[in-house]
């Protein structure tokens, strides 16, 4: 995660929150939240190297596959549930969105926006996009759920979630005007109605 993106996400997390970070990677976001915003919580990771990195940083991490669900966690047991660049890897992305809203009082979801104009341009030219934000070829991408900013807004509405805030991130800068065109990353802050 770029330092700018990390900061932009961290800004959405209230001071002292109890945080669950789904697909927490090497734990850098949680470590930042622990150090700078007095947050506590857990990361969830499947990858061995990332689990090790979290333990090395002193970030509590639980190793399991998110496709197995969030049964481990009770209703509304976290202030914030983060899904940062995680959604696109999940087989059960919709279930996990509902689970995020069940477990957390607030959900923050960020994912690569397929609607960003260079991606559209690439598809118009007949090729799947390969760029800094989507660095994979179509045949080896771990991104099994590719959606746009607008697609996610529709999914959130369908699941009865209230979008508290939604914006794009482009080179670390917040994009509020036409984010579905202008931003490579979509960010949603959600609550249960």
């Amino acid at each position: 995660m770029s330092p700018d993106m990390l900061k932009a996400i961290a800004n959405l997390v209230p001071e002292g929150s109890r945080v669950l970070d789904l697909g927490c990677g090497d734990g850098s976001l949680l470590a930042h939240l622990q150090t700078h915003k007095a947050c506590i919580g857990y990361g969830v990771e499947i990858d061995d190297a990332n689990v090790l990195a979290c333990v090395q940083r002193g970030v509590p991490v639980l190793q399991f596959n998110l496709d197995a669900g969030l049964r481990l966690f009770e209703d509304q047991s976290f202030d914030v549930v983060l899904q940062i660049d995680t959604l696109q890897h999940l087989r059960n992305a919709e279930t996990m969105l509902r689970e995020t809203a069940r477990v957390g009082r607030m959900g923050i979801v960020a994912f690569p926006n397929f609607g960003h104009w260079p991606n559209r341009w690439s598809v118009l030219r007949g090729r799947m996009p390969v760029n800094q934000r989507l660095p994979y070829e179509w045949y080896d991408t771990p991104n099994i759920r590719v959606g746009t900013f607008e697609d996610f807004a529709v999914l959130a509405r369908k699941n009865g979630l209230h979008v508290r805030d939604a914006f794009g991130l482009q080179e670390g800068q917040r994009v509020d005007f036409w984010p579905n065109w202008r931003a490579s990353t979509a960010v949603f802050q959600l609550q249960r109605r």
Binding site: Y42, C54, L62, Q63, F64, F73
Partner: peptide
């Protein structure tokens, strides 16, 4: 995982490697 779940429920500091 039962141990982990019980610790999480009590908001204890726990890491779990499988």
């Amino acid at each position: 995982r039962e141990i982990v779940q019980a610790l999480v429920k009590n908001q204890r500091d726990v890491s779990y490697a499988e």
